[in-house]
Simulated assay, not measured.
Amino acid sequence: MSHDATNWAIKQRGLKPTTKIVLWHLCDRFNPDYGCFPSQARLAHDCEISRSTLNDHLRQLEAGGLLRRVPRIHPVTKRQMPTRYILGFEPGFTPDDPTPCPETGHGDNDAENPFAGTEDRADEPSSVPEPCLNSGHGKDAGAVSDFDPDPCPEKGQSRVRNPDTNLVREPLSKPVKEEEDAQARDSDFDRFFDELLSALGFAANAMLPAWWQGWPARQHVCRWRDELGLSTDRIIETATETRRDHPNPPDGPKALDRFMERAAQRDALDAANSVKTKRSRKAQGTPPPSPDELAAFYAAKVNSEEYLPPSMISNAMCEAMLARRLVTSDRLRQRGVW
């Protein structure tokens, strides 16, 4: 690695975070004597991104004039070797030619590149062969992912997906709607917290005590709402009631826990009494069933085929059904209730 190279990468401004990480790791792999030629697998592993995403950021760096890529092909085996990355701080650096090649879409200015004859290691053969006649690969070809429809027979088709034609898009880390809702909730809670402090007797612009500063105090107030089930209006109402017996503001949210718990208990008791009152009113408004209705109800049970417990019908009810000729004695014996 080279400290001068990594310092140069850090000083570059206006880059996206991931793009700058790619540039930094390229500079981290730079050797002052031999240059920079990490494999794409190694570079993608260092940056913790996919190879297709890596090629996107490499194109952005190359378009921004911060590096130039020089592909290398072994002259004997015709296999692709790790790309040589010429970084912008190296002496004699010239950006890639923006004029695209008609075959591959990449620039072709090797003739103007002062590194054209020195991009390989000292112990490796020259890596700038003539281009393939079928696809044009071998002379300043682009990233591995930008493969031609008719690949070079020696190199084969790239195994990296083309991000420009990939139909799968990574979802947003946080949907915009949810983020806007979260911001709105934070704004509403800030207004509620200010109203609570005002109800407790704190001035609008006064310096708050340490017990009421920071997120611990706000989180404690949130527990009154989430755990005790108190509404924001109920919390402010209870806080206002505490000022009647305690003219000075409380030392912190914990001093109000007892009052908030009592308010929650009163609300629960009032809710239970309200339910009982509604049930009582409903029961009072409905008259009890008449003897004829009761006899008809139990007779329907006896005459049906559904399960009938023997203790469900009393002897008095059996006599009432027989008197009204709703059932027969044989049916009662058959059902086991007589």
Rank of each mutant, 00 (worst) to 15 (best):
D190E: 09
H137D: 15
L133M: 09
P129K: 05
D164Y: 08
N162F: 00
D120I: 00
P129W: 02
S126H: 00
F115T: 01
D181M: 14
W211K: 13
K139G: 00
A111Q: 10
H220G: 14
K174V: 12
T104M: 09
F202E: 08
F189E: 08
E178C: 05
P175Q: 03
F193E: 03
N166K: 03
V221Q: 05
D186Q: 09
V176H: 11
Q183L: 13
K177D: 13
E178Q: 01
D148H: 11
K174S: 12
W211F: 13
S145D: 06
N109T: 09
A184R: 06
A143P: 07
R169F: 10
D146C: 12
R161C: 07
L208K: 04
R121N: 13
E130D: 04
L208I: 00
F189T: 08
A203K: 00
Q213Y: 02
F202Q: 01
D123C: 10
R169P: 00
A184I: 06
P209T: 06
G214C: 06
C132V: 03
F193Q: 03
H137G: 12
D148N: 10
F193C: 06
L208F: 04
V176K: 11
R191T: 15
L172S: 02
V160M: 06
S145G: 10
P129Y: 04
R159G: 12
E179N: 12
W212K: 01
G136R: 08
D148T: 07
W212N: 03
C132D: 09
K174Q: 10
T165M: 11
N166C: 06
R121Q: 12
N113P: 02
D181I: 11
S173F: 00
S158W: 01
N205K: 14
S198K: 00
P114L: 03
N205Q: 14
